[in-house]
Amino acid sequence: MTAAVDPRRARRRSEQLALLTALLPLVWMASAVLEIFGQSLGPNPSRELLHSSGKTALNALLITLTLRPLQQLTGRIEFLWLRRMAGLTSFSYATLHLLVYAVLELGLDWSDLGNEIAQRPFIIVGLIALIGMIPMAATSTDRAMRRLGRRWRQWHYAIYPVAILAVWHYYWQVKLDVTEPLIYAGILALLFGYRLYR
């Protein structure tokens, strides 16, 4: 008689829980768009969606980077199970962020795009970060992990430059008060420092 839980089932459970958590910001955005549950996006709705999707992507990215240290500090393997879901969450919200920008902010008016990008170099930084996430997202299945073998790990080192670009993108677009982007940069530095000096 053993009380051991089937690890594969436990992992599926925790991934399902993570997925539900990951959907919460989307539920909030949807309720605010539909103005239900007392939510509202206010008089500048597209800007609000742009900011909340971007912030969610950044939060999920930093959470992804926190899971390995958490596993090492606590010895609990469960943290590593969540990395895939956290990374995919970040990628999904970053994609939504780009869509909100293109469709709602620009109104798909591509004639403006060149001018916009020339004026806002932080857009390019954000775009590179998002493109850098694509190979990681595309290889986030068990099959891709098996097929790529050792190279899989190398591909996924891309998360480090992506994280730097994402925080830089946030820092650069702030109007005046850079406190919050600096907090993000500090957390990122902490996570990098832990990996370097451990």
Binding site: P43, N44, S46, R47, D112, N115, E116, Q119, R120, P121, F122, W172, Q173
Partner: peptide, 13 residues
């Protein structure tokens, strides 16, 4: 333009 964004258009609230 503002150094970080275009002033050519505006969003009417």
């Amino acid at each position: 333009d503002h150094p970080r964004w275009s002033q050519a258009k505006e969003r009417r609230l």
